[in-house]
Amino acid sequence: MSTGSRSEARAGVLEARELRAETWDDFEQVLGSNGGARGCWCMHWRLSIAEWTEGKGQGNRRAMRKLASREPAPGVLVYAGDEPVAWCSLGPRTSFPRLERSPMLAPIDDAPVCAITCVFVHRQHRGSGLLAAVLDAVCDYAASRGYPIVEGYPVEPRPGKRAGADTAMTGIATGFLEAGFTEVARPRRDRPIMRRSLT
């Protein structure tokens, strides 16, 4: 990454671009050879556990590539200049069957939310405090698509503990707070549901 891109990332000058054929290579660059964690390729919330396990690795990668050619886009890459620094999976809750079936993350009301189900920061930027700026860029994108509310499902690790890439895939609560989200429910001690109004 160039020095200019690092400075832009730290300053929060970020832009979200849809995952499409032309941004696919950047998606692979951000997620790495494992597709994020354990061959997920961000299909965790879109498939049953059996389907996800069967497709683990290249099957999940192919499934996400198909989604990148459809409407709506399955998510956005977030850039500092022309350098991809993060990936975010988002869309209507109905786009994520596993989320819809989750007893812990069941809908709290009928609001038409844009669900953020994964926030994956490039390994070169983890721990740099970039999450809030990434979420700001994602919210700008969601607002431009007419969503009134963005909803996230971050984890809140115990003090002094760090969440691994596979458990922190939904984001960290402190980053959501810094990005102007507020807690609207807490189905489990370490799993708040957070929202930000875009209207």
Rank of each mutant, 00 (worst) to 15 (best):
S2Y: 06
T3P: 01
G4T: 10
S7G: 12
A9Y: 12
A9V: 09
R10Q: 06
R10E: 09
A11G: 08
G12S: 12
G12Y: 02
L14V: 04
E15C: 12
E18G: 05
L19R: 11
T23E: 02
E28D: 11
V30S: 10
L31N: 08
N34C: 07
G35A: 04
G35E: 01
G36L: 10
A37T: 13
G39V: 04
C40E: 13
C40H: 12
W41F: 15
C42F: 10
H44K: 09
H44F: 15
W45I: 06
W45A: 04
A50Y: 01
A50H: 01
E54M: 02
G55P: 00
G55T: 02
K56S: 09
Q58C: 04
N60F: 03
R61Y: 03
R62F: 07
R65Q: 14
K66E: 15
K66N: 06
K66R: 14
L67C: 12
S69L: 14
S69T: 15
R70A: 15
R70L: 14
V76I: 07
L77S: 05
G81W: 11
G81N: 05
E83R: 00
V85S: 10
V85N: 11
V85W: 04
W87M: 07
W87T: 01
W87D: 03
W87R: 06
C88V: 15
C88L: 10
C88K: 05
C88G: 07
L90Q: 13
T94F: 00
S95E: 14
S95D: 12
P97Q: 02
E100S: 14
E100A: 11
R101C: 08
R101I: 00
S102G: 03
P103D: 05
L105N: 08
D110N: 11
V113G: 00
C114G: 07
A115I: 07
V119I: 11
F120H: 11
F120D: 13
H122P: 12
H125Y: 15
S128D: 11
G129W: 10
L130I: 13
A132W: 00
V134C: 13
V134A: 14
L135M: 12
D136E: 13
D136F: 02
D136W: 05
V138G: 04
V138H: 09
C139Q: 10
A143L: 10
R145N: 13
R145V: 12
G146Y: 03
G146H: 03
I149H: 12
V150H: 06
E151R: 15
G152I: 04
G152M: 06
Y153E: 04
P154W: 09
V155S: 01
E156N: 07
P157E: 03
P157G: 08
A163N: 00
A165M: 05
D166I: 01
T167Q: 13
T167P: 01
T167H: 01
M169L: 11
M169R: 08
I172F: 08
A173Y: 06
F176A: 05
E178H: 13
G180H: 09
A185C: 05
R186N: 03
R188M: 08
R188I: 01
R191F: 13
R196P: 04
R196S: 02
L198V: 07
T199Q: 01
T199L: 06
